[in-house]
Simulated scan of single mutants.
Amino acid sequence: MKKIDVHLQDDSYSIFIGRNFLSDIGSLIKNKYSFDKVVIVTDDIVDSLYGEVVENSLLKEYISARRIVIPHGECSKNLDMLRYIYNQLTDFGITRSDLLLTLSGGVIGDLGGFAASTYLRGIPFIQVPTTILAQVDSSVGGKVAIDLDGGKNLAGSFYQPKAVFIDIDVIKTLPVHYFYDGLAEAVKCGCIGELSLFTLFESIKTKEDIEKKLENIIEKSCQYKASIVEKDEKESGLRMFLNFGHTLAHALESFKNYQGISHGEAVSIGMSVITENTERMGLTEKGTEKKIKEILSLLHLPIKTSISIEKLMPYIMHDKKIRGDFITLVILESIGKPKLIRVPLEQISTYLATGSSL
């Protein structure tokens, strides 16, 4: 099992990457940590595949365990489900000496992590991500949140897990759609700084190529994100680069009410659109857009949308990167060279104009 350490002083933790260890997760946790009880927060689909496996692994180590099962999908990342988790934690008698374990993709990681960060003003939690998107991105870095009516991730906090356990073999049960979806965040890492990852994607021709290199993709993505988080945990500067493509992405997801578009698809469109516009404006090296779109298209990810920027603007106006009358956008000068720019709100459409707005 490979280990990547995230150095954050008192909040330091490790990311463990391996294969076929879910049935032994109980002993892995017990050997490294000491908790009285463990509550597993998962969704209905993942629970049907792995919920009992993980719970039995904990019980085998004489760790008291219970599962909280949430309906799958972004629509569950809300105040009602958060309240439901709080009530379940209370019923189970969870204290600060116990553990919350998230077992699923990014939705449960965000929702369960936010519950852990706020219940009793903070209880320990561990991430066990089961999607590529969560393994390469959302499980690492301590961003936890829920969605509000006004947009995505508007209520949240920075709260680091005690550990992240990534079992690559669980990817075998992912639908093909979500297999490719999660890779968008890995491509993003390649675009903004991890050049070896971008080169790796350029060498890929088939799904079989991806499967052979998947462990390397996950490891490089985690290493890169960990290095960014170590330098800027609370997103005051460098960590903002990780938002490349996300301003438009979050607006698209909110506009569609999290139906019919996945996060990875939205990020793919967001990266493509902003790079197309900045290259046209002379801010990005010629050919950058083509390189990115070729990789994303090979991964069966969308690179454009028919939704106009005018329709998306009400959601963009809730973006967390807005300060006063300006928004901070992430653009590329070239592959591997991101740049933060402050854009007046009235000029947003110049950078984020979609296909129907150009």
Rank of each mutant, 00 (worst) to 15 (best):
A65Q: 01
I269D: 15
D149H: 09
L82K: 09
N153M: 11
N78H: 01
R342Q: 13
L298K: 11
I316R: 01
D5M: 11
D149L: 11
S34T: 13
K293I: 09
H177S: 13
T131I: 06
V41H: 07
K290N: 07
C189M: 13
L8T: 00
H300K: 08
M271S: 10
I45D: 13
L238F: 07
L89A: 05
R19G: 11
L332R: 10
K30M: 08
L120R: 14
D91C: 05
I261L: 15
F241E: 14
T284P: 01
D98E: 03
I70Y: 01
V176Y: 15
I261P: 06
M317I: 08
D11I: 10
G122S: 13
I85C: 00
T288K: 05
E294R: 14
G150M: 04
K60A: 14
E52K: 08
L133C: 02
I85Q: 01
L99S: 03
L358R: 07
S357F: 03
S34P: 01
F244Q: 12
G109K: 03
K286D: 08
L28V: 05
S196K: 14
T328C: 08
F326D: 10
V343I: 14
I274H: 11
G113S: 09
T173Y: 08
D137G: 05
C222P: 00
H177N: 10
I123W: 01
Q127D: 12
A134F: 07
L154Y: 10
R67C: 12
S254I: 06
K207F: 10
S12L: 03
N243C: 04
G260D: 10
G122K: 11
V54E: 07
L120M: 15
K286Q: 09
L174Q: 06
L332K: 14
T354C: 05
Y178P: 03
I331V: 10
E276V: 04
N216A: 02
D10V: 06
I168N: 13
L174F: 02
L352I: 14
N31L: 11
I269A: 15
A116S: 15
G122A: 15
M1Q: 06
I68T: 07
S272E: 08
K290M: 10
V164Q: 02
I63E: 14
L103W: 01
S236Y: 08
A353V: 09
K256R: 12
E233T: 00
E194Q: 07
V273F: 12
Y119N: 10
K212S: 13
H318F: 08
S221A: 12
N153H: 05
K3Q: 15
V107H: 09
S306M: 02
F21M: 04
K290P: 00
K188Y: 09
K188W: 10
F326A: 14
G122N: 13
T90C: 09
G151Q: 12
N216S: 04
I132T: 05
G260E: 08
N56S: 05
S14Q: 13
K188L: 00
K311P: 05
I63C: 14
G324M: 12
I94K: 00
K304Q: 09
S334P: 02
G282I: 04
E233I: 01
E55A: 03
D11A: 11
Q127K: 14
K205M: 07
D24Q: 12
K213I: 01
D5R: 12
E61T: 11
L79G: 14
